[in-house]
Amino acid sequence: MQNVFGHIHAHFRDELTLHKIADIACMNEASFCRYFKKNTGRTLTEYVNDLRINHACQLLLETTNPIAEIAEDVGFNSFTNFNRCFTTRKKVSPRTFRKVVI
């Protein structure tokens, strides 16, 4: 699993497919999903989105880059999806997060 986590952390900004990650783990997709959830408590998508959101938080605090640019930089291909995921995980929108924390 070290290879899996290494790959995820190195490429979380890129499009990560279940097929590719399962191949790295030398497992079929269904087995990998069960194994990953059992060991992390999260699905692969939840895990990757958490990495992306955490990195977005860092960029929101450290830069003045537009939020849409940050969303793209951290690997979200949809600004709407980024806002939804961010708000769900942080209980506040990215814009509010930036204003309140700074």
Score class of each variant (00 low, 15 high):
2 Q>F: 03
2 Q>N: 14
2 Q>I: 09
3 N>T: 05
4 V>D: 00
4 V>I: 12
4 V>K: 01
8 I>N: 01
9 H>T: 05
10 A>R: 15
11 H>D: 00
13 R>W: 00
14 D>T: 07
14 D>G: 02
16 L>H: 03
16 L>F: 02
16 L>A: 05
18 L>T: 13
18 L>Y: 06
19 H>M: 09
20 K>N: 08
20 K>T: 15
21 I>F: 02
22 A>L: 03
23 D>C: 09
24 I>V: 08
25 A>N: 05
27 M>D: 01
29 E>S: 13
34 R>Q: 13
35 Y>C: 08
35 Y>A: 12
36 F>I: 13
36 F>D: 05
36 F>C: 07
39 N>I: 09
39 N>Y: 09
40 T>K: 09
41 G>Q: 06
43 T>D: 05
45 T>N: 09
46 E>T: 09
46 E>Q: 15
48 V>I: 15
49 N>M: 10
49 N>C: 06
52 R>F: 02
52 R>T: 00
53 I>A: 14
53 I>F: 04
54 N>Q: 14
55 H>Y: 11
59 L>S: 01
61 L>C: 04
61 L>I: 13
62 E>G: 01
63 T>S: 10
67 I>R: 08
69 E>C: 04
70 I>L: 06
70 I>K: 09
71 A>H: 11
74 V>E: 07
75 G>S: 13
78 S>R: 06
78 S>N: 13
79 F>D: 13
81 N>S: 11
81 N>L: 06
85 C>W: 04
86 F>N: 10
86 F>G: 08
87 T>C: 07
88 T>A: 15
89 R>I: 08
90 K>G: 06
92 V>D: 05
95 R>I: 12
96 T>N: 10
98 R>C: 04
100 V>I: 12
100 V>C: 06
101 V>P: 01
102 I>H: 13
102 I>G: 03
